[in-house]
Structures are given as C-alpha cells and as structure tokens.
C-alpha cells in the first residue's frame, strides 16, 4: 500500500534522506529505527506530502505523492513529531476542524467522534483547550486527529514519545488492534516497542537504509538483544 522509490532530500549541503526504497503491505507494521538525525522524520514527511523530495517518488494506496497529493493525504493518517496542534482551540473544536477539512459531515462525523474519542481516552479533556493539556494528552489528541477518518495507511512519528508507561501500553495496544487491516509505519527510539508491535523493521542511518528485516531475524542473526543489534549496526556498519 506504500511504495517508496529512491526517495532523496537534501537541506543545503546536508543529505537528510539518501535514496531510500521500500514497500509496505496491508497488515504490516513497519518500525523505522535510527539514531537522531538519521532521516526518519524527513522520510515520513515526504510520504505525508508535507515535504517535496528532491528526487525519487512514493505512492500511497496507488496515488503518487507528487502528482496527486490531495488523494494521498485523504487516504493517510499522519501524526507529526511532537503532535503539533492549535493551542487556542478546544479538543472538540480541533477534531471538528479536522472533520471539516476531511469533509466528514453529519451522522458520519458523530460516528467518527464517538469512535476515536473513547479509543484515545480523551473524553475527560474534550472541552479543554489544547494548551492546558499535558504532553501525553496532546499526543493522544493528535492521534485521534490522525485516526478520525479511519485511514488505510497510518504514519506515526514517535507516537509514544513523552507518554507514561501506562499510556505507552495503551497506544501500543491500539496499534496492535489496528495492525491487521491497516498499513502502519512508526518511527521510534524505543527498541522494546519495536519488539512489541512491529512486524518488520528498517534501520536508517545518515539517510541510508542499513537493514530491512524482522525483529526476530535480527536478534537471531546477531545473537543479541535488539538494543545491542541496533548499536552494532549503526556504529560499525560501513555505508
């Protein structure tokens, strides 16, 4: 459902993403791993049509990101890093704005809100403004916004960053529940998370894909825990 071909993006002299290619199918949860500045977020932003690639292309549900970005954005749920929101809006106002923009109306809107609000456990803050929320709640509001149109493809940039252990567990449970009928890419630094939810993992460093495998295979191959595998690959492997 997602197909990425030779995607490349530079910022000035820095090459953020250097020709990465991969495909993700329905039912897969792909974990993007890599050190800070490896190009994970940049790659995700390009697939979500926020950034334009310098070269290469990608398609989501058959729509090309360069030729038909609006259709891509329609079929995609994207949670950006740090879950940016409009601070002066209430949670309800924000979700209604997203429904407006995604043209979810009437009974459908009510059904969508009734579905995502309990799913992300944000009932208690529904009438609060976003700026009064804690980090964990903000992220869950962002997640609710990304899920409101029940997209086939989800791209989540560090969805559990800043959450407490209980909330992390909840979000992981949520992702596991959706995994079967969606195609999900998440980026994370937390390797236990990869083991808990990802069916496949790609390790990126300096904009290049170093490894594309499953967590189990990696552990077998290096005969070590994922933490150690990650360190071995990102610090020693020649590019």
């Amino acid at each position: 459902m997602i197909s990425v071909k030779e995607l490349r993006r530079t910022f000035g002299r820095i090459v953020a993403v250097d020709g990465i290619s991969f495909d993700v199918a329905k039912g897969e949860v792909l974990g993007l791993l890599g050190p800070n500045g490896a190009g994970k977020s940049t790659a995700m932003k390009m697939i979500a049509c926020f950034l334009k690639p310098d070269s290469g292309t990608a398609s989501v549900c058959g729509y090309d990101i360069a030729k038909d970005p609006v259709s891509v954005k329609k079929s995609l749920g994207y949670l950006a890093e740090n879950a940016p929101c409009y601070n002066e809006m209430t949670v309800g106002g924000l979700l209604n704005f997203i429904c407006d923009a995604r043209q979810i109306r009437g009974a459908k809107r009510k059904a969508a809100l009734d579905r995502v609000v309990p799913m992300c456990s944000i009932e208690s803050v529904y009438h609060q403004t976003v700026e009064t929320l804690s980090k964990g709640y903000r992220r869950r509001v962002g997640l609710a916004g990304a899920l409101i149109h029940d997209p086939d493809v989800l791209i989540l940039d560090e969805p559990t960053d800043g959450l407490d252990p209980n909330q992390k567990h909840e979000v992981r449970k949520l992702i596991n529940k959706m995994a079967a009928e969606k195609c999900i890419i998440i980026s994370t630094h937390i390797l236990e998370e990869v083991e808990a939810i990802c069916s496949r993992t790609i390790i990126i460093a300096r904009g290049k894909i170093l490894v594309d495998s499953t967590p189990e295979k990696l552990k077998q191959k290096y005969n070590a825990g994922l933490n150690e595998v990650f360190r071995k690959i990102t610090t020693t492997k020649k590019l």
């Binding site: 609006v70 954005k73 994207y78 950006a80 409009y86 923009a101 995604r102 916004g145």
Partner: peptide, 14 residues
C-alpha cells in the same frame, strides 16, 4: 513557529 502548519498541510488541503 508552533509546527501546526504540519498538521494543516497534511490534511487534504492545497
């Protein structure tokens, strides 16, 4: 500055 532009422009809006 707040980054909400990323939310806005990843909605199906040109």
């Amino acid at each position: 500055r707040s980054g909400s532009i990323e939310l806005l422009l990843t909605l199906p809006i040109t």
